[in-house]
């Protein structure tokens, strides 16, 4: 090809345009990133549990069971409280009578009393579904009955669930159980019917000590997002890669 003046000018002009294009123009957005760019999608529910504030009263468990129609006398709960007692011999004793529904009113742990002078520390840890970013329970569902909503809450379609129980086994946190009335998998919904109406979850409202908080982690002005950003928070079983969205303040290494 002859290198005419016209050709030379054309080539150098297109070369300059190509060099001027930023690399970002060629980047492929994942569907999630494209979705997040839309303003209405800037909502992701997250939860904070402050274990230092919890006194083990169990009012959250009671409120949750009544709000969400979980049979009251059956020992199944969407949220529960664990009591950890660390004794001088280095042992940790853990119990959760009825999921903490009636609070912790006795020093007896599974029928045995631990003498006060043997206790080095003891505390309560409320637990609930972690509404993981990578939910193992959704991954294993063979019929696609459980799913993650756009705002990050994992729900179960009661009409579609076949009750195989794979998700109950897959959850590393033991947050799922079998609903004895509907005969399908059951789990914490972050009180989806309440948060969608601008209310707090039943457990957050019931807690007298403010040990539980729910908010939008994508909103910088949200107090929950602010706490997660600025304070030292931990999650449960990080090593499983499930990216849990329930953050704990004052978490002890013994909590599993």
């Amino acid at each position: 090809m002859k290198c005419s003046r016209r050709n030379f000018l054309k080539k150098s002009l297109s070369g300059a345009v190509a060099a001027g294009l930023p690399l970002a123009a060629f980047k492929f957005l994942s569907p999630r990133e494209a979705h997040a760019a839309v303003k209405e999608a800037n909502l992701r529910w997250a939860f904070i549990v402050d274990t230092r504030k919890c006194v083990g009263c169990g009012l959250c468990v009671k409120a949750c069971k009544k709000e969400n129609e979980i049979p009251y006398d059956v020992p199944l709960t969407r949220t529960w409280i664990e009591r950890y007692i660390v004794t001088k011999d280095g042992k940790t004793t853990i119990d959760t009578p009825k999921g903490g529904r009636d609070g912790f009113t006795s020093k007896k742990v599974r029928g045995e009393e631990i003498p006060d002078d043997q206790i080095t520390k003891a505390f309560f840890v409320p637990k609930l579904c972690n509404q993981c970013d990578n939910p193992a329970c959704v991954q294993v569902c063979p019929v696609g009955a459980t799913y993650q909503t756009a705002d990050g809450v994992t729900l179960v379609d009661r009409k579609w669930c076949i009750g195989c129980g794979y998700c109950i086994m897959a959850c590393p946190y033991g947050a799922r159980f079998f609903h004895p009335v509907y005969r399908v998998a059951e789990k914490c919904t972050f009180c989806y019917h309440r948060i969608k109406k601008g209310m707090k979850t039943a457990c957050v409202d019931a807690c007298p000590f403010g040990a539980r908080q729910i908010g939008n982690i994508k909103d910088i002005n949200d107090p929950v997002a602010h706490t997660i950003l600025t304070e030292r928070v931990a999650v449960l079983k990080d090593e499983y890669g499930t990216k849990p969205q329930v953050f704990y303040l004052g978490l002890d290494e013994r909590v599993r």
């Binding site: 709000e67 909503t149 989806y192 209310m199």
Partner: peptide, 25 residues
């Protein structure tokens, strides 16, 4: 609906079922 087959199963009608659940407290 927006995510992959591993995590993205999504039943839109069921979301409304949950939204319409009755508030007690």
């Amino acid at each position: 609906n927006g995510r992959n087959f591993t995590y993205g199963y999504y039943r839109k009608a069921s979301v409304n079922d949950w939204k319409e659940f009755k508030v007690k407290y």
